[in-house]
Amino acid sequence: MKNRKRRNDIILAAGLIAAASVAALVMYLAAKPGDYALVTVGGKEWGKYPLDRDADVVISTEYGENRLVIKDGVAFVTEADCPDKLCVRQHSVKNGGEAIVCLPNKMTVRIVSDKDIVDIAG
């Protein structure tokens, strides 16, 4: 009885880890460097910045302020006025589909490539 439960526990944990690993691997292999950092606020487009040009923008909206820096082809957030600063702590992004999200300020930075511009939702 106890062993059966222990076995089920291990199957559950192993299954979850395997599923996560496979998903991560697929996402990693499918990743291609993007071309633009698309900034959205509250789900609407706020601005678009090419990754091949260094930039330093303050995204100031009714929800709050975030500072986006693009340097050497990667985008990251250096400052935020939200309480948790999770967007600052997140890793920099450069591959298509990757995103930095600041939930309190409803701000997101997503990386898109030229072909995605037509179909952003894709």
Binding site: M27, T40, G43, G97, A99, V101, K106
Partner: peptide
């Protein structure tokens, strides 16, 4: 809340 589907990147 954010309407950003890219968050699913965090699933794994």
């Amino acid at each position: 809340v954010t309407g950003v589907r890219e968050i699913v990147w965090y699933i794994p």
